[in-house]
Every structure is written in structure tokens, then in C-alpha cells.
């Protein structure tokens, strides 16, 4: 199962480090990363393979949510199906 991780907010140092640390500890594999500044807002999108994670998916979403709150950014991890369903025919 693949998931899409999005980070949106004011740019600051250590975002990728902190996010990938949690992913690595959960045994989630990063397949692709892209980032850009849109209208002054930092946005990063990661494609992550979560097939072999060593915890429940809800624990991973909670860890990302907590990290997001602590650095004042929105960090979400969602199954890729939701994006494919909404944007392709």
C-alpha cells in the first residue's frame, strides 16, 4: 500500500529530517519526494510505501499530526487511492 504525505506551511529548517526520521523508525520507504514554494507557502509531497510498516497506520498518522502541531505546519499522510479516485476518470 502506498500513501501520500503532504507537508504545508511556513518553511523552516529540519522538516525533511524530522518527517523522514519518523518514516524510517516506522519502516516506511520513501519512493519519491518533491517540494516547492507556492504563494510563499512551503509544500512538500512524499510518496511512501507503507506495506511493511511496523506499527498501525493510525499511529503513523498521529505521529505526523503531532510533529505538524509542534512545528506549526500541516502534515498529513493519506492512502494514495483518495487522490487517484478524485482526480482520474
Amino acid at each position: 500500500m502506498r500513501a501520500v504525505l503532504t507537508v504545508i506551511g511556513q518553511d523552516k529548517t529540519g522538516i525533511i529530517y524530522n518527517v523522514s526520521k519518523i518514516l524510517s523508525e516506522s519502516n516506511a520507504n520513501i519512493e519519491d519526494i518533491s517540494q516547492t514554494i507556492m504563494q510563499g507557502i512551503f509544500t512538500m509531497i512524499m510518496l511512501v510505501d507503507v506495506s511493511d510498516i511496523n506499527c498501525d497506520f493510525s499511529e503513523l498518522t498521529e505521529a505526523m499530526d503531532n510533529l505538524g502541531k509542534s512545528i506549526g505546519m500541516s502534515i498529513r499522510i493519506q492512502h494514495e487511492d483518495i487522490f487517484n479516485a478524485m482526480h482520474s476518470i
Binding site: 501520500v4 503532504t6 504545508i8 518533491s34 516547492t36 507556492m38 509544500t43 509531497i45 510518496l47 500541516s74 498529513r76 494514495e80 483518495i82 487522490f83 487517484n84 478524485m86 482526480h87 482520474s88
Partner: peptide, 16 residues
């Protein structure tokens, strides 16, 4: 795989 702007659009719809 959905493209960049589509992903952000979905996230924005849910969050905001």
C-alpha cells in the same frame, strides 16, 4: 499517480 496540484487541491478541500 495524481499530479502535484491535484494532491494539494484534495488536501485543501479537506483541511480548509
Amino acid at each position: 499517480m495524481a499530479v502535484y496540484k491535484d494532491i494539494i487541491e484534495t488536501v485543501r478541500m479537506i483541511e480548509r
